Simulated scan of single mutants.
Amino acid sequence: MEDSGGDSIERKRAVITGVSHNNGIGAAICRELAAKEIDIFFVYWQSEDGFADGFEQEMLDAGVSCRSMELDLALPDAAEKLLDAVYTACGPPDILVNNAAYSTRDGYENLTAEMIDRHYEVNMRTTMLLSTMFARRFQGSEGRIIIMTSGQEQGPMPGELAYIATKGALSAFTLSFSAEAAPLGITVNAVDPGPTDSGWMDEQTKALLEPKFGRGRLGRPRDAARLVAFLAGEEASWITGQVIHSEGGFLRS
């Protein structure tokens, strides 16, 4: 990692996937972890020119070391490539945040094998492989794996069949994998941020969703990021195998 000019105290290192634009949940997670003096390695894909360099500099200015990698997480060997790069550039990581996701609209009339496979490659295969490879290589005493999910068990999400199926699989994976990872000193939890205004909503969508929030506003990227930062910290060392719904009182009816 780039030297931020700080002292020589060994700090925690975090790998965060799905950090591809400034207003996303991934970027917010990086900012919250950097505020806790955790060094950052972020993964992006198909971002605007200059985003990665600019965001790296933002992290350096925040006082932590930072490196990044452009990587298509749909590739079969993406997990291995990523962890190899992290170990080479930075050393062993302590925290893995599986934030990247693939999502398209489908519905029963449009669902195809290609759509299912694309969701599976990014949402399930690489997330599961990253998590298990992280555990196999883990060298520390306290590790954290955090998986972003989507509240699919809270109610139906019509028109997103491939997405909710793959995200639902991650909830099941979180519970069972947490039992295997616990003896290694690694906690495994999932976070459902609910509908979050991270740049994908048009004004019509915002107007439809906002009245459904008990807190009176849409979710913001920092809402999810603060919970992820908590789960990544020492205070959450006794929490594992949980899917935490942090939705601001969102009503699906």
Score class of each variant (00 low, 15 high):
199 G>A: 10
175 L>D: 07
39 D>W: 01
167 K>A: 02
86 V>L: 02
221 P>D: 06
197 D>P: 11
74 A>W: 03
179 A>K: 15
191 V>G: 11
223 D>L: 15
52 A>I: 00
114 E>C: 01
200 W>L: 13
232 A>N: 00
30 C>H: 04
205 T>A: 15
56 E>Q: 13
85 A>R: 11
30 C>G: 02
4 S>P: 08
105 R>V: 15
43 V>C: 07
140 G>D: 11
185 G>T: 06
49 D>Q: 12
121 E>M: 13
5 G>T: 01
207 A>F: 12
228 V>G: 06
93 P>K: 03
230 F>M: 13
15 V>C: 08
65 S>A: 15
66 C>D: 05
202 D>E: 10
125 R>A: 08
229 A>Y: 07
47 S>P: 00
45 W>L: 08
200 W>Y: 13
218 L>M: 14
119 H>D: 07
146 I>A: 04
129 L>C: 09
16 I>L: 13
96 L>R: 04
127 T>L: 11
237 S>K: 02
244 I>G: 05
222 R>Q: 14
215 R>Q: 01
129 L>Y: 09
14 A>Y: 06
220 R>V: 09
77 D>V: 11
201 M>W: 04
105 R>F: 15
186 I>W: 00
240 T>S: 15
247 E>G: 14
173 F>Y: 10
98 N>P: 07
105 R>G: 14
214 G>Q: 03
120 Y>L: 14
